[in-house]
Nucleic acid binder design. Structure first.
Lengths: 210, 210
DNA sequence: CTATACATACGTTCATGTATGTATGTAAAC
DNA sequence: GTTTACATACATACATGAACGTATGTATAG
């Protein structure tokens, strides 16, 4: 069997990415060889080297599949035409927590990023792109907070920058902790409570004001 | 040169651990070979295999050096004889943030744990011990919070368990974010503000009550 | 004299990258 | 509508080097 049609080739590519995701999640990125992936996907290493440059490239392509939805959502949230920016922010944050629990692919990618790979320069784009994504997210949330302040939903002297970083750290900590110890608490069930607690912090904490 | 005195042998052991720490932090655990470590420490692999079973063992021994101070501190904090448990908790949390910034060894170990190693079963004790440490920390903070509730420093109906996990996730998120992007905010300078914000959340957030 | 604290040397196992083989889809030529 | 030619989508085979673990050598401390 050789020379598949373009659709079949695309399916093979997806197969490889799926297998890689599963193995990365279970054994870690650097402890998974291309032979492992090929075997799990039912192909040979030749197929992998056809579709990808090497493991790092394969790893980066993996992330390209899952980022888009959450990013597009967060963008419209930061619009200053939104009449209730604080509630949109709340919706977004709750969604992030819930999706991580219920969307296997998102959970897989986050679990790999948090606990199954090493952030080193050899990973190529990953580190830079991840840093860039964070800074973008900081900025977008900061904008949302400014909009909320302008609409009187948050204290006028709230330091939006500090608050944005605080929120993101909080979310990252929740995800990281839950992905490490999924049985320690019910992330999906408590999502609203956890986010509301965080947002109430923005309202009440005088130490986050300038 | 061979056969050193016991003190010199101990010094060699420390040298190896130091070199390993530096290389793990820079290149990641699995991308650092024992040859790299030996070379950096000015010894041969033979010396490493004399002092340690293998890389995993070496990695685990690394952590044994740095955990103790923060653990002993957190233990006395949870004592119910403490008249001001909330303030002791505050001190502890602020200290954790500051030490991470100013104590190179703590920063190194945390940076490795968060971003330079993979949490997989092949790492041996690491995963289990790390999980155990987390659960202990949850429990201790929960006890501190109960003490604070008993002394009227926190709402009587605060869910201590939820609050404990919330605090730990928050701290973990701050550390993880800062270690990834140290220039994005001043963790040491803002330590008190960040912790006060978190503690004010415990006081005001109704969503953390039972 | 013996155990220690290494250094040296050796064998073996992967994992990687590349080179090559090969059968088929696909499009153009006739 | 065949035939031809070429690119595609892999499989197979090979060469290389890195990293590991172990076995052994060896000088000295105790």
């Amino acid at each position: 069997m050789v020379r598949k049609t373009k659709q079949e080739a695309q399916a093979t590519r997806e197969l490889i990415l799926d297998a890689a995701g599963t193995l990365f999640q279970r054994k870690g990125v650097s402890h998974t060889s291309l032979s492992d992936i090929a075997c799990a996907a039912g192909v040979t290493r030749g197929a992998i080297y056809w579709h990808f440059e090497n493991k790092v490239d394969l790893f980066n392509q993996m992330h390209a599949r899952v980022h888009l939805p959450i990013e597009s959502l967060s963008k419209q949230t930061a619009s200053d035409a939104e009449p209730d920016p604080l509630d949109r922010l709340r919706d977004l944050l709750v969604l992030i927590l819930r999706e991580t629990v219920h969307n296997p692919r998102q959970r897989q990618v986050l679990e790999i990023l948090f606990h199954k790979c090493e952030f080193i320069c050899e990973m190529g784009e990953l580190v830079e792109r991840q840093e860039a994504l964070h800074l973008e997210a900081f900025a977008r949330t900061e904008q949302s907070l400014r909009n909320a302040i302008a609409r009187g939903q948050l204290p006028a002297d709230l330091d939006a920058r500090k608050a944005s970083i605080t929120i993101h750290s909080y979310i990252r900590g929740l995800l990281s902790t839950w992905l490490l110890l999924p049985d320690s608490f019910d992330l999906a069930g408590e999502a609203e409570n956890l986010i509301d607690a965080c947002l109430s912090m923005l309202v009440h904490a005088t130490s986050l004001r300038s």
